[in-house]
Design a protein around this nucleic acid. Structure first.
Length: 648
RNA sequence: GCCGGAGUAGCUCAGUGGCAGAGCAGCUCACUCGUAAUGAGCAGGUCAGGGGUUCAACUCCCCUCUCCGGCUCCA
């Protein structure tokens, strides 16, 4: 019986039973057939050589698509394992999936891999690719699978842990699963794969690192090899170039180059000091934060860095978070204090300082609060993960009937804040109740519904992050995409019905009854330190005018132009701009080079002609050309316009 | 915390058992310059810290610290 295939262009074409994906691709065109790595039938991916089981919506998957690259990388992982098994007799192998931009495979060869090992493995992989070994799909029963991997304990564990129904290729009494074979190498795998190893035009092993078996730090550590694979050498070169670009934007590097901050040894790991330039960047961000909070109806509060341990017992932090809190300080006998890891309990105490009426809600408290968290040593990473950080934290206390409006307002605030710093693409995660949580499940569900409704109303795209919520309540996390497409978590909006309860908060309702208020935790930047690191990487250190620590640098051509340079500086300063004069006696070329490497938004060169005509030579960062003899007033209005902070 | 790699001048790096090096930055002097590095000179070191092997250690071995890449974690 013939199969009816619906092509992407809407045509329906009949093919004889037993036709393979490769046959169909070839019938469409030889170039398509050559580019194909697999086919999709009703969006289910199938090997090219596999007879199509039925008719349906049909697509050819080429290596130039995300699905195609995924298949390519997955096949590359097999080739990697094949190479390792052939070079290291007795090697155990675990799992080897395709990941974003590449693939990895976990092994146990009784020792770590050396860089020389990686080079040898890569050479072996090239041999396997050159041999163009076909990938063969074989259906096996669970017992057959066990026999095939009899000496592979990791594979046996996978085989025994996978429920037949879950694999579900042909569920009922059919085979249990599939393996893929190319020559002597066999791996347990669902597929699909490229038809033969020769399809791997471009791949490269990048590094090896320890990785816990099945992601569990209590289990043995395997050695993971990471690689990248692409549809063409050009695509791979582009990817490697992107990696270099990311390195160029590294905020740790730029922080030193632009003299923004440092991490002195004497302070201890994960603790930064902000230098004057970085300090200005921070001040500008903080000023903006304060103006925004004011505009959205927040009030400013302040709290100390320490509190009695009792506070953290009430809040539950000691039960749920003690591992990441700095150890107690013994201040007096039996008198213990803790450095604060969060600001919320303080704000709660401010709410509780007197009786509250339903009329005064919502109450919105905001604080740029510095907190200290004893992050594990291995996770520290520049400003992105530190032990001392400042949050633009806020806590809103409201009535249940106000929750929806408040959440909408917070979300609006957050997206405005992020766009002000130059981010255009947002994605939200709705994180639901984690395994270890406090509070009744129906309250959790109610809060989760409220958050989801807010996201729907605003029309922000989101995904559900099951079990990722805070221990006290569910949350929305907002992620941004930066200039080179990386995803960063910044803002967070969390509903909390536990802490108000724990601290015995209430307000007096219209019926003169005490009612427990709802609480919303919100950080717009998250950690300001981390956020600014993301901003630095996003802009590659070339800040938009309003954020730049120095907005204009005035460069005198020679010393006799210094007086005029100062006149220009003072005129610009008068307008509230951040201006500096270069007093060095370097050549103009050197002054310009230095200003450009410092990524100043504007340079103003002043020489004889400018002194005479009251003009400047303007140069804008990113423009290669200079404009000579620009009247000072004209230059000034252009700079003011370009350095204007966002409206609040 | 775990696995691996690294740590030499402020920065980037050379130095594989036998006198501690370069470029940039800094300082001094000269030059006074019109859009990405003017020239000369000077100064700068507990070779991350501690222990060991050796006639001799930046170099080899052990421990600690810090950083880098991952894993795990991130209220």
């Amino acid at each position: 019986m013939d199969l009816e295939l619906l092509y992407p262009d809407g045509k329906v074409i009949s093919h004889p039973a037993g036709v393979t994906g490769a046959d169909v691709a070839a019938s469409i065109g030889p170039r398509l057939a050559a580019a194909a790595v697999a086919v999709a039938l009703d969006d289910q991916l199938l090997d090219l050589g596999r007879p199509l089981p039925a008719g349906g919506r049909f697509r050819v998957i080429t290596a130039q698509s995300d699905e195609g690259r995924h298949i390519l990388r997955h096949s590359a992982a097999h080739i990697l394992a094949q190479a390792v098994l052939s070079l290291f007799p007795g090697a155990q192998f675990g799992m080897g999936p395709a990941i974003e931009d590449g693939f990895y495979y976990d092994f146990d060869i009784g020792r770590p891999f050396t860089p020389e090992d990686l080079a040898a493995i890569e050479t072996r992989m090239h041999e396997i690719v050159a041999a163009d070994q076909p990938f063969e799909r074989v259906e096996v029963s669970q017992a057959e699978a066990r026999a095939l991997f009899a000496d592979q304990t990791l594979k046996l564990e996978i085989i025994d842990s996978v429920d037949a129904a879950e694999v579900g290729i042909d569920q009922a009494d059919g085979p249990w699963g599939t393996v893929y074979r190319n020559l002597e190498f066999i791996d347990l795998c669902r597929g699909p794969h490229v038809p033969a190893t020769g399809k791997l035009f471009a791949f490269k092993l990048l590094r090896s690192a320890g990785a816990y078996w099945r992601g569990d730090e209590k289990r043995q550590q395997l050695q993971r090899i990471y690689g990248t694979a692409w549809e063409s050498p050009k695509a791979m070169a582009d990817h490697l170039h992107r990696l270099e670009e990311a390195e160029r934007r590294d905020h740790r590097k730029l922080g030193a180059e632009l003299d923004l901050y440092s991490f002195p040894r004497e302070l201890g790991p994960g603790l930064a000091v902000w230098h004057p330039r970085g300090g200005m960047l921070r001040k500008v961000a903080e000023d903006h934060s304060r103006r925004m909070h004011e505009r959205y109806g927040f009030e400013f509060v302040y709290s100390p860095h320490l509190a009695r341990e009792l506070l953290w017992e009430i809040s539950g932090h000691l039960d749920y978070y003690a591992d990441n809190m700095f150890p107690r300080l013994e201040v007096d006998e039996d008198e213990f204090y803790r450095v604060k890891p969060m600001n919320c309990p303080f704000h709660i105490l401010i709410y509780r300082s007197r009786a509250r009426s339903y009329r005064e809600l919502p109450l919105r408290y905001s604080e740029l609060g510095s907190v200290y968290r004893q992050e594990r040593s291995g996770v520290l990473h520049g400003l992105l993960r530190v032990r001392g950080l400042t949050q633009d934290d806020s806590h809103t206390f409201c009535r249940p009937d106000q929750l929806a409006d408040e959440l909408a307002m917070h979300l609006e605030f957050v997206t405005k804040w992020l766009s002000d710093f130059g981010f255009a693409e947002f994605e939200a995660d709705l994180s639901t109740r984690p395994e270890k949580s406090v509070g009744p499940i129906d309250r959790w569900e109610e809060a989760e519904r409220a958050l989801e409704a807010t996201l729907k109303n605003v029309g922000l795209s989101y995904r559900i992050a099951e079990g990722e919520g805070a221990f006290y309540g569910p949350k929305i996390d907002i992620h941004v995409r930066d200039a080179i497409g990386r995803r960063w978590q910044c803002s967070t909006i969390q509903v909390d019905f536990n802490n108000p309860e724990r601290f015995g908060l209430s307000y007096v309702s219209t019926e003169n009854e005490p009612v427990v208020p709802y609480m919303i935790h919100c950080a717009k930047a998250g950690s300001l330190d981390r956020f600014l690191a993301v901003v630095i990487e996003h802009h590659a250190g070339a800040f938009p005018g309003w954020l730049a620590p120095v907005q204009v640098e005035v460069l005198p051509v020679a010393e006799r132009h210094l007086d005029y340079a100062e006149t220009v500086r003072d005129a610009l300063k008068e307008q509230g701009l951040r201006v500096e004069v270069d007093y060095s006696n370097d050549t103009l070329g050197e002054k310009i080079r230095r200003s450009l490497t410092q990524k100043r938004p504007f340079l103003a060169v002043v020489g004889d002609k400018d002194v005479e005509a009251n003009t400047v030579g303007m140069r804008r960062y990113g423009e290669d050309k200079d404009r000579r003899g620009v009247p000072l007033s004209e230059a000034m209005s252009e700079i003011i316009e370009s350095c204007r902070p966002p409206e609040v």
